[in-house]
């Protein structure tokens, strides 16, 4: 990959949460962003976290092979964007990478947009790869559903969010993680007042919409109405001819939309 070596690449990392147990961990997309950064910049990559350096999960990022991480020490209710804005005013970067959205809290994914807007940089969402950086422009691949990719070019400096389709993060190693250092800077963020009014509660299960008729034509709507509800075991075809079985499979493929009509 042709990459100018003198690039300053920073990755914004957050404390994630395991989807099943809810325990703190490195956030998956953030870790993918670190991975992407490491392939571009190696160990000169800088990591920035807004929050508390005492959080053990942060060491999982250091365990990916980085010696230090900058922590803008902030109270939990601080507004991370204002803190980062001040940081990047004094620590210029060419590329800032982040996950698409956090794993905790509001997880709005808005932070990169706020930064981009206030820094006046372009933002490229959901990238899977940075293919090349030449003459002050980067060619990136944006992840689309179904494994599709779109090529985009964007001038430096820019912010990109890294999609879950980007290469998986390398394993974090315990030893380097424990020995890594935090460069702690007192943050000067304002408190996020809007959030104070919100009420958080354990997620309620969302009611499943029953019998949604998504079909376009009457025939399809009919099919949707008569389709067997899920979870009752499937249909088994034994006596029919091979042709009929194949036809049934083919119909299913078409109905599921995996064969282009």
């Amino acid at each position: 990959m042709p990459v100018e070596t003198s690039l300053n690449i920073a990755v914004l990392v957050s404390v994630g949460q395991h989807p099943v147990s809810g325990r703190a961990r490195r956030a998956d997309q953030d870790a993918r962003a670190v991975e992407l950064g490491l392939t571009l910049a190696g160990r000169s990559l800088s990591l920035v976290h807004v929050g508390d350096a005492g959080e053990p999960a942060l060491r999982q990022y250091l365990g990916m092979g980085l010696r230090t991480m900058t922590v803008l020490q902030e109270a939990p209710e601080a507004d991370a964007a204002s803190s980062l804005l001040q940081y990047f005013a004094t620590h210029p970067a060419d590329i800032v990478l982040a996950g698409v959205q956090a794993e905790r809290g509001e997880a709005s994914g808005l932070l990169p947009y706020l930064l981009a807007e206030r820094l006046g940089w372009p933002l490229v969402p959901r990238i899977a790869q940075i293919r090349a950086i030449e003459n002050g422009r980067a060619e990136v691949l944006q992840a689309l559903p179904r494994g599709q990719r779109r090529a985009l070019t964007v001038p430096l400096p820019f912010i990109a969010t890294v999609d879950s389709a980007a290469p998986g993060a390398r394993q974090t190693a315990f030893g380097p993680g424990q020995r890594g250092l935090f460069d702690i800077q007192r943050g000067l963020a304002q408190a996020d007042v809007a959030r104070a009014e919100w009420v958080e509660a354990q997620a309620r299960p969302r009611p499943k919409r029953l019998n949604v008729v998504k079909a376009k034509s009457a025939a399809e709507r009919f099919k949707a109405a008569t389709a067997k509800p899920q979870g009752q075991g499937g249909q088994v075809m034994k006596q029919e001819s091979s042709r009929e079985k194949a036809q049934a499979i083919f119909d299913l493929l078409v109905a599921e939309g995996v064969i282009r009509q």
């Binding site: 099943v20 147990s21 325990r23 092979g65 190693a173 315990f174």
Partner: peptide, 21 residues
């Protein structure tokens, strides 16, 4: 594993799971 983070194949995932769950 502890210094290089190179447990092959599903190793890393399994260890992550053990830590998280």
């Amino acid at each position: 594993t502890l210094e290089k983070g190179e447990t092959p194949n599903k190793g890393a995932e399994v260890l992550d799971n053990l830590i998280a769950t």
